Simulated scan of single mutants.
Amino acid sequence: MKGKEWYQADDVAEEYDDKRFSEGGAFIDRREKEAVLSALGPVDDKRILEVACGTGRFTVMMAQQGADIIGLDISPAMLAQGREKAKQVGVDDHVEFMRGDASRLPFPDDHFDSVFAMRFFHLADRPVTFLRELRRVSKGQVFFDTFNLGSTRVIYNWLLPMGSRLYSRRDVESLLADSELKLETEAHDFVLPYGFYRQLPQQVARPFRQVDTALGKTPLGDKLASVSYWNVTK
């Protein structure tokens, strides 16, 4: 099953968070949320768009932080999960979930203070088209992540049920140049791939995460990292 079809399946949406962010996957969830909050900074009263919001992990978090946020996704099943999540924590009246196509965002130019997309570009069949759209609707800031070529991600990438695009640094630099975006800050993490953590109970995964973090701080860390976070501006 190809990426878009796999992603929109109802059963995938229902199991998405449990399969990826429970047990050892909690370390992934924590790091990703830290990356988003660190890049976007204080979001109180900011107008923010999350593209490919999925089940609303970040959308709801941003609403809890005081953002005026819209979460856009192509999957009705994923959006339903996000709405339920927002309702459970009492922010359903502060966040809007909308179905839409990331290649044709239904917003005017310069509409949002910040735009971000997590867990998206590894599924993007036209990354330049998508990034240009993120740029168009943002007043300045765009934040996104990539899975990296030359990392341990390659080891299990072929096992995934959907295609997964991996990026070299040169690929990202070319993508930014073609989208007329400037790199402001970057961060790299997870020498061990995500799939490794998701297979382990949290207590077993903890010491591996500690070693992973320590290795990431060495000169080889950035080169071996399987995930990169890119904070860019117009």
Rank of each mutant, 00 (worst) to 15 (best):
W6F: 15
Q8P: 00
Q8I: 01
Q8W: 00
A9M: 12
A13D: 01
E14F: 02
F21L: 02
F21W: 03
G24T: 09
F27K: 09
D29F: 03
R30P: 00
E34M: 04
A35R: 13
A35N: 04
A35Q: 08
V36Q: 03
V36H: 01
A39L: 06
A39T: 08
A39P: 00
G41E: 11
P42M: 05
P42A: 13
V43Q: 07
R47H: 14
I48F: 12
E50G: 05
V51S: 08
G56R: 07
R57P: 01
M62I: 01
Q64K: 15
Q65K: 15
G66R: 03
I70M: 05
L72Q: 11
L72V: 13
D73P: 08
A77Q: 09
A80K: 14
G82H: 07
R83C: 04
R83Y: 00
R83P: 00
V91A: 05
D92A: 13
D92V: 02
H94L: 07
H94E: 10
D101M: 10
F107H: 04
D110H: 14
F112W: 03
R119K: 03
F120N: 03
F121P: 00
F121E: 00
R126T: 15
R126G: 07
V128M: 04
R132N: 14
E133V: 12
E133H: 12
R136Y: 04
K139F: 06
D145Q: 04
F147L: 15
L149Q: 12
L149W: 09
G150P: 06
V154A: 14
W158Y: 10
P161T: 11
Y167S: 07
E173M: 13
E173G: 08
D178N: 15
D178P: 02
S179T: 10
L183W: 05
E184K: 15
H188N: 01
F190R: 02
Q199D: 08
V204R: 08
A205Y: 06
A205P: 06
R206W: 06
F208H: 07
F208V: 06
V211D: 09
V211T: 11
D212G: 10
T213E: 12
G216Q: 13
P219K: 12
P219S: 13
G221L: 12
D222S: 11
L224A: 14
A225S: 15
T233Y: 12
